[in-house]
Design a protein around this nucleic acid. Sequence first.
DNA 1: AAAAAAGTAGAGCGATCACTCTACCCTCCA
DNA 2: TGGAGGGTAGAGTGATCGCTCTACTTTTTT
Lengths: 183, 183
Amino acid sequence: MTNTKLRIATELDRTFAEAGFADQGVEALRAEADVSLRTLYKHFPSREAMIVGALEHRDAAYFEWLAGGPKEGVEYILHPLVRLCDWLAEVANTGCLFLNAWAEYPESKAIAAIVTDHKARLADEFRQRLARVVPDRDTADLAETLFLLHEGVTQAARLQGRERATEAAMRAARAALAAEGIT
Amino acid sequence: MTNTKLRIATELDRTFAEAGFADQGVEALRAEADVSLRTLYKHFPSREAMIVGALEHRDAAYFEWLAGGPKEGVEYILHPLVRLCDWLAEVANTGCLFLNAWAEYPESKAIAAIVTDHKARLADEFRQRLARVVPDRDTADLAETLFLLHEGVTQAARLQGRERATEAAMRAARAALAAEGIT
DNA sequence: AAAAAAGTAGAGCGATCACTCTACCCTCCA
DNA sequence: TGGAGGGTAGAGTGATCGCTCTACTTTTTT
């Protein structure tokens, strides 16, 4: 990916998150990215490609955001949730870009594919972390619960305020682990 | 509300939920509602009014959906969550119409107003139910958790499948109540 | 029976849409 | 030195957009 393409993708991600997909035309996207229309279309040859490009950028940015952190125990398991709360505080609190895109363009196969793939890998993240910390147990249900809290706090933070929502999510997540005796 | 207006609002709600806000023009909405363009504009004088009308219809339909149910105990508290799971199975599993609308039109005050109002009343529903069953306790945190599960399952059901998501949500909700000794 | 209200069909309007194209400018580097 | 690659500016195109309007019919009210 060239510098220019990456720069455009970053701006597409940001501007779709901030202003939505519905009432931003290509000219508005061009202005936000601060490039010529020709260059924009060279890298993203249609409006749908711009949306897909923004989602691909967000996918990479989010998994990079999850990297690092504690290496074992409960904190290792909960790290993705903690980082989501960080994201809501430090990056943006505008709901889930993937789910919003999917809701707006339910007929687009390209969008559906990247959304379901991203979320499947995210759900796997919880499964794998649980499997590593408590390999001798069936933690499928717990992984489901943590994923559900991840999705819930993303939305609730917009509505109830970030702090209230993130505290509730972390409290519920720790309680769910404690109830299974995972410490 | 006249019969015609109600019928149009019902179709607007359904079609926005199914096909999103972004790529449905007024002509498509008209066709779904099966009325003339003039009649559509008579009841909803702008596209934004059609969106607001759909949200108002959904708001009324959802609170009506929550009516009734057990009168006491844990089942009374959890009734809205149970009914949400019913909704996902029987009505539609297309995410939250309110959050989708808000994400697409973050600049619209009319849309923001109805979305925040709807969600505030929904959060209150959990608070009031908890206050009635355990009036001598501070259940603010629990209410927050239940609301978060409500929002989470709405999204997760689209991604992980309705059954897995609803089971995880009910399990987590019952565990949260049990952890506080509410039975 | 007459009048008013509420509906249908669909042409038409100006604005805006996604997208293309021409013409030109830098900056490398062989 | 000159040519290729990647960029800018912005006019232009046909399609579609949200919305209005005329002309007419059906239903309801008085």
